[in-house]
Amino acid sequence: MERVLFLGHTGENGELGRAALEALHAAAGLAEELGCAFDAGLVGADVQKAANNIGSCGASSFFAVSGVDFAEARYGSDVLAAEALCRKSGATIVIAAGTSRWMRVLAGAALRLGGRIDTHATALGAGQGAVSISRWYYRQRMEAQLSRAVRPWIIVLEPGSAPAWQGEEKAAALVDVPVEVTDAAKRTSFAGYRAPQASEQTIRPDAELLFVAGAGWTKKQADGNIHIEEASKLILDFMHKSNASLGSSKSLVDLQGEGQAVLPFLTHLNQIGQTGATPRHAKGFATCCHGEEPHVVGWRFINERRAVNTNPNCGWAQGKADVLYVADAFAVMAKVNELLS
């Protein structure tokens, strides 16, 4: 008989983030499908509030590893917490969200537990009684359905792959799981967060729109010249007005390291596609992109997609975008900005 454990950690507000609630939804659903019990395991400085928020989720137990040692993400202490929660629950299937905090430690925890791990899972189910998952390989270019015999099996769910759990708040009875954090595990200390040094905050994961600036912005235009300043102004204007998140194609980001003409506010963190992020937004708007990177890989999780490109035969946009506008992006964006004013 399987036993499912949902693992969650608190965010800066002491609550579970959206990705965690998605993982909880998936875990509860799987337990129901399997007809087995499931537990919740929570990690954070103080997890009572988070536990109460999900108190009505149906978990058999709410296990907690909490205290100052667990306030912030750190491999040494988090791996101990994850390991202890899994052991306490005795779960065979462990489900967590693919947050940076869990992605850092859960592979290590799986190894300590003698189990296995799969990350970037997008779906899970228990058809015919056997648990199987779908997950990505080759950076979102291939999707596999697989199952495993080894337990415990930690499944890290890609954010955005399941609906977030919703339910009534209810006081949860926490079962404290003591974890001793040795000095060796505390060699690392948290020293804060740093936002990108760019003057603009251009990455907004919660934005409705992803605006993709392709390498074409930095190429010679019809007059034979490069217009970086104009391109920068148009894009930043649009970012202000649309509140979009900004993505860039690989080539554009790589140019930066080479001292080439580039849009000055782009960093590696903006990069989407094969070697960048694969963000999730309701809408995607690609400009001056040509090639597989933005359209095929970077757009995997964009619902509505439109592109502006001067090449009507762009085989990358065709079949990938809903609408391809064959036009000069400089002119189009200037007018779009004017209309948005």
């Binding site: 040509h290 035969n313 085989g315």
Partner: peptide
Amino acid sequence: LDGKLFVSLQDALLVGGKVQAAH
């Protein structure tokens, strides 16, 4: 163009030739 065998020259550069130039 069918996007499989008959593609634009620009796509042939990307799909078929995978043309790259280091900076």
